[in-house]
Design a binder for these strands. Structure first.
Lengths: 143, 143
DNA sequence: TTGAAATTGATAAGCCCTCTCAACATGATA
DNA sequence: TATCATGTTGAGAGGGCTTATCAATTTCAA
């Protein structure tokens, strides 16, 4: 609960800073978004159809993109679709993605993160964010 | 030269194994593909228009996807387009991307690759490919 | 050389996402 | 609290990129 409030505040601040408004739809979508690790606009569209049958798909896309700008979500292209990851609820994590069944396993590896910083520094870059995806076959799809 | 022959052999073997045929277009596209680091289907379409004005865009897409299946190329979604990377000509590389000016710096880091394998193994996965992108500010954009 | 089977080119179709715009909601202001 | 300028929404049209369709053509094993 308190976590949701925290995210809601991040959103509120972002909205205030850009002369945007907090709408019923944005609250609804944020609440549902925070309950999950990754979502697709399409997925949320179906999930939320029960709570608000008139919620439009365009609004979901717009709102998820808004979350990205606010630093609450992160867009990731997977296959032909865009996945929106919840990056603020818990620490950053990377993905192991099964090319067979689409299963996504999350992982964190400090050592890799440290090496990334090293590479960035060596090139004079300051990292803001990163994305690491390992594609392969999960145990079940390996035969 | 000998390298191109090597790739051509990889393709030939893949074709033979799947009852596919080596066509003039496939040779043409492979030769052009091997000369570059990353390409877009659209890019190749324009490049090859001079050599073969009737070469269709669909054929290029089909052929690049074929190269992916043969292990010669690797598809990567970048923005709204698909980039096809030449992964066999030289080693795999990752990207440092400047969020300020869009500059892309390539890098390789064996240690990171090794740790990725470790993570995959720990989760029972067999990695086929991966993608690592570090987003941040380049030296010039840091003020 | 022949012919079954794969491939091509042109374009239609499909998918995912964004744009458009009239109707509506929000929230700063009085 | 009422007003109203401005942002937002929903529905569908539009758009960019990629794949499917299919008749004509090419490949290659026999």
């Amino acid at each position: 609960m308190s976590k949701n409030l925290k995210e809601m505040d991040v959103l509120r601040q972002h909205l205030a800073k850009h002369q945007l408004k907090l709408t019923r739809q944005r609250e609804l979508i944020l609440t549902a978004f925070l309950r999950q690790e990754h979502v697709t606009a399409e997925t949320m569209y179906h999930q939320l159809a029960k709570k608000d049958p008139h919620l439009g798909l365009a609004t979901i896309y717009r709102t998820l993109n808004l979350f990205c700008e606010a630093g609450i979500a992160q867009a990731r292209h997977f296959g032909t679709q865009t996945q929106y990851d919840n990056i603020s609820h818990k620490g950053h994590h990377d993905h192991l993605i099964c090319t067979g069944c689409g299963t996504i396993v999350e992982f964190e590896n400090c050592e890799i993160e440290r090496l990334q910083e090293e590479v960035a520094t060596k090139n004079g870059f300051v990292i803001q964010t990163h994305r690491l995806e390992l594609y392969g076959l999960c145990p079940r799809c390996r035969h």
